[in-house]
Design a protein around this nucleic acid. Structure first.
Lengths: 240, 240
DNA sequence: CCGAACTGTGAACGATGTTCACTCTGTCTA
DNA sequence: TAGACAGAGTGAACATCGTTCACAGTTCGG
């Protein structure tokens, strides 16, 4: 490939910039990641950073993309530690890994899955599925849901509510794999949003007013989740 | 009460400041709300604003509190348009109102229910339940869940998973009302996080890569939700 | 080996939050 | 009613921020 010294040096610089930016994000939140602070930390001039990124927004956008890849790797790794023939356990493992990573990287999580950062459009904004990081993480879950569907244990609503409402490219994705039908995608999206709700609420600190042991709550939710995926439901009547 | 002219003038000024801040937030996102922009818009000096708020963070914190109150009012109003004897419909009405307000006020929603703003601790951080705005909104849902519990249609997990994990003050809240037991609180929290997940993901733009008609998806989720609250579940087996 | 592209510099501009000493003015008390 | 006092507004100043620009040094390819 004949990579010149400059090219090697450049990718190193880009990597270090993002690394420092992330460290600043972690220690001081979004407002702490500034070009001047980065340049200071690196012993460079601020203007030199513009040789690598056209703007601060572009820098955090790049960082965001990298973070998605990291979260994806973590999720996939957790899945692969569970045998293939137990889709429910695989889903649970991914969910736990997802939450754990988020809790251990709150600032990063906020940057990735919080409100859109004004400057830059993230990889999840453009509907050009499924070759974007977000879709890739979701796809891991979707695969297990497809397996469950094949086994006939998946609980789905009687009528398919999103038939015809999928993003075209994702529609293609479904059509490509014969074993995935839109009810499966709906079940996945339902689970995906639900998982996001529990985790994001906890990470963003919107549950501290009600629950002390959020881990316990999460596991309880996960248990109910597993029961639902296994096809059983329990109905405990109230006193009335 | 003998309110002096100055006092009246002061509350007007505070109100106008928050008003202008909100307008700036809506038009330009969080970075657009700045003391200088506010003072410019109001024909004042920037330093004069410090007579009303000790810092910018304090200002947005105050704005955030006000927004919670507004969202609460909207939610309660939607509930009260449905007869008391149909708890499920009341829950659905509140959920729809919640989502609609969020969609029509994306920036405000992000400020309220996104990642915590670094400068100021919000009303949902301190665990001093339930006299805070967030808890008040949740309480509206909780009330309907209690009614469903009384009717014996609420689906709850076989073992109570959050017994002893509630915030003490919320525990008191439960103890005060004889008709609310912790399984009800768990069911509520489960629903609350789920609702948050669907709505926040849509508002933050994290679903555009998969679904075009998010309204349809939301309604489908709501339908499944209503079925669950009514105590019925449907299990459609896959082809396997 | 030499021109061209890449990388880094330092100064500058406009914007931001915050502080400070200073006025002016309404309010309350002696 | 007169004067003291607290509230409200001013303008300058400081440090920080993103961004741009002309300039200098270094590396690469023909």
């Amino acid at each position: 490939m004949a990579t010149t010294w400059r090219e090697r040096r450049r990718v190193e610089a880009v990597a270090e910039i993002k690394e420092v930016a992330r460290r600043l994000l972690v220690s001081g939140g979004p407002p702490a990641v500034s070009l001047r602070a980065i340049s200071r930390e690196m012993g460079m001039t601020t203007s030199a950073l513009y040789r690598y990124f056209p703007s601060l927004d572009a820098l955090v956008a790049a960082l965001r993309g990298e973070l998605f890849e990291e979260l994806g790797r973590v999720t996939y790794a957790a899945r692969d530690e569970v045998p293939e023939d137990d889709p429910i356990l695989r889903v649970l493992a991914m969910a736990r890994a997802f939450r754990r990573w988020g809790l251990e990287h709150r600032q990063e999580f906020g940057l990735m899955l919080g409100p859109p950062v004004p400057g830059a459009a993230g990889p999840d904004q453009e509907p050009g599925a499924p070759d974007n990081p977000v879709a890739c993480i979701g796809a891991a879950f979707l695969g297990e849901f497809a397996e469950l569907w094949r086994r006939g244990t998946l609980v789905v609503p009687p009528d398919d509510p999103i038939e015809g409402h999928l993003v075209p490219s994702l529609d293609l994705y479904v059509a490509r794999r014969a074993d995935i039908e839109t009810p499966v995608v709906f079940a996945f999206l339902s689970a995906w949003t639900r998982l996001y709700g529990i985790i994001a609420m906890e990470i963003f600190g919107h549950m501290t007013w009600a629950v002390t042991d959020t881990e316990e709550f999460f596991e309880a939710e996960l248990a109910g989740f597993a029961r639902q995926l296994a096809g059983e439901t329990r109905n405990v009547p109230g006193p009335g």
